[in-house]
Design a protein around this nucleic acid. Structure first.
Length: 286
DNA sequence: AAACTAACCTGGGGGC
DNA sequence: TGCCCCCAGGTTAGTT
């Protein structure tokens, strides 16, 4: 489920309630979702910083005094993971895997709850050098598309060497650009008027420019709308996103294109269902 | 290098 | 109502 806009929305919704809080207690209901250092290691540490990198959420945990190690708590929600806040550890809803009690800043404790139906999501707890140095448990990730530095030149450089990869696969490749998943890949390609099966190496300069612009534009608009809720996704306070109302192609196979009325097509590409408008996104450049 | 499959999991929907 | 198959927002590993 969660792609960059959803993960960013979760991060922003959690931040005010968890920054500056101390970890009081970690209840690990499903041990297999936890990797790295023992959960008890973080008891007494304070959350001082949160960050998103691609689809990863990172929390920086610092010791209260000068003694002890700092840690990164790295979370990936995969398809159905949810990170929400509640006032108590109960009720324990179905598919709850981790419950973390936070306190110290607020009079009442706050509980950070991790639920994940499919159990693909996971936590990694790793020692940290500094908040500037991201942990090496993160895989190789491409540039952040919402960073100011991201532009056509950066995208062109990232695509170089992947000339024979189709655009759908290229956008889904986290090492080329971080944070794009199946929904936004299709929406981005529609916005840039490029066919999903065009090869990355076949783009001219103008097309790379359109693609870079569409990546930023679609993701920014989706963040403004607090993400896309199709089924499971909610933010830290159980609120749904609203970008599902803005989708132009994803999930619209057989329906008329919102721009030209042509029927939206669907086929499997890069192993994922891919939606596009054959008129707005002709295979051959217009 | 890239395409393809299966794997990790659970649940929902469609067809019969 | 129930069963079977396919599908799902992600990623990795193994194979051709």
């Amino acid at each position: 489920m969660p792609e960059l806009p959803e993960v960013e929305t979760v991060r922003r919704s959690l931040e005010p309630s968890i920054l500056g809080q101390f970890v009081r207690h970690v209840i690990l209901d499903t041990p297999s979702v936890w990797r790295g250092a023992d959960p008890d290691t973080v008891t007494g540490l304070r959350i001082t910083f949160s960050k998103r990198r691609g689809k990863y959420l990172l929390f920086f945990l610092e010791p209260a005094g000068t003694e002890g190690l700092a840690y990164w708590l790295v979370v990936h929600l995969r398809m159905t993971g949810r990170l929400t806040l509640q006032g108590s550890p109960d009720p324990v809803r179905l598919h709850t895997h981790v419950r973390i009690e936070l306190g110290g800043k607020t009079p009442q404790p706050v509980w950070l709850i991790f639920q994940d139906t499919r159990r693909f999501g996971h936590f990694s707890l790793v020692p940290a050098q500094s908040a500037d140095q991201l942990p090496d448990v993160l895989p190789c990730l491409g540039p952040e598309p919402l960073d100011a530095a991201f532009d056509a030149k950066v995208l062109g450089r990232q695509l170089f060497g992947h000339g024979r990869l189709n655009l759908k696969a290229a956008l889904l490749n986290q090492a080329i650009v971080a944070g794009i998943g199946n929904i936004y890949a299709d929406e981005i390609l529609f916005a840039s008027r490029l066919a999903p099966d065009r090869l990355a190496g076949s783009l001219d300069e103008a097309e790379i420019g359109r693609l870079a612009e569409a990546i930023r534009d679609v993701l920014l608009r989706a963040v403004e709308q607090c993400g896309t809720t199709l089924k499971d996704y909610v933010d830290g306070w159980n609120r749904k996103g609203s970008f599902q109302h803005c989708l132009m192609v994803y999930g619209r196979a057989g329906q008329p294109c919102r721009r030209c009325d042509m029927t939206i097509q669907k086929k499997k590409l890069a192993g994922r269902s891919t939606h596009w408008c054959p008129a707005c996104q002709p295979y051959l450049p217009a």
